[in-house]
Amino acid sequence: MVELDQRRLMVVKNLLNELEFYTNDVVEEANRGGLCIEINGWHLYPVFQFDENMELHGQLKKRLDDLRTGRNDVDVLYWLFAEKTVLMTKAVAPYHLIEKALGSGDLKAHDELVSAEARQSEYLTARPIDLLGKDEFDVFVDDWKLGDYRMIPRKEVKDISGW
């Protein structure tokens, strides 16, 4: 437990060093529902979440409840700034080709289909914060919150050699 507390302290320290913050003096009451780090009674609101009118970024505001479910604001901030890779579109070989390869016992053909699926699937590597304001931000949130239950768009594998 001590090790976990020390790692958490390091995360907070790094966030404090890397981010700019507003205090309650600057953030109006209506926007204090945004991400916040509280230290010794001070409420620190990361600047990136506010627009030029000091309003919370709409997309972030819309997804805050999802992001906070089961986590606190430090966890959410860490997640926002950590680079990750998300499957955006899964390539799937046509069923009849898989059935043909397996039915004939042609494991080499089956392996080629599996390899083609992997090569043609689309991934995005980014920090979620860099996607704020784009549709991909919501995909990253859904991937984090829904995991294996996320609906991933599919496309058919194309240009399979020898088929």
Rank of each mutant, 00 (worst) to 15 (best):
L132S: 06
L64T: 09
M54D: 11
L124A: 09
V141I: 12
E52G: 12
V86D: 02
L113P: 02
V12K: 04
I152P: 04
W144E: 15
D111L: 04
D148L: 10
V11M: 05
N14E: 15
I160F: 05
A101I: 02
R8P: 07
N31I: 05
L15S: 10
N40A: 12
W163F: 14
S115I: 00
I39E: 14
S161E: 15
F81H: 09
K61N: 14
N72P: 03
S115M: 03
K90N: 02
I37A: 01
L77Y: 12
K62Y: 12
F21G: 10
I98A: 12
H96S: 09
K145P: 01
S121H: 04
L113N: 02
D148N: 10
E52S: 14
G58V: 01
A116D: 00
E18A: 10
L107D: 13
Y95A: 08
N40S: 15
K108M: 06
R150W: 08
I39H: 08
L15T: 08
L4S: 12
L146E: 14
A93P: 01
S104M: 06
K90M: 00
V11K: 05
G34H: 06
G41A: 11
V2D: 08
T69M: 06
E29A: 13
I152F: 00
V74P: 09
E112H: 08
L64Y: 05
E99C: 08
V139F: 02
K100G: 02
E20K: 14
V157G: 00
R127I: 03
Y95D: 08
D111M: 06
L44E: 13
V2H: 12
L16T: 02
Q120W: 05
I98H: 05
I39D: 12
R150C: 11
D75W: 05
V157E: 00
T125M: 04
K155W: 01
R68C: 09
Y22I: 01
E55D: 13
M1N: 13
S121V: 01
D65C: 09
W144G: 03
A101K: 04
F21C: 08
A30R: 13
F140M: 06
R8H: 05
L15N: 10
V141E: 04
D130H: 13
S121R: 02
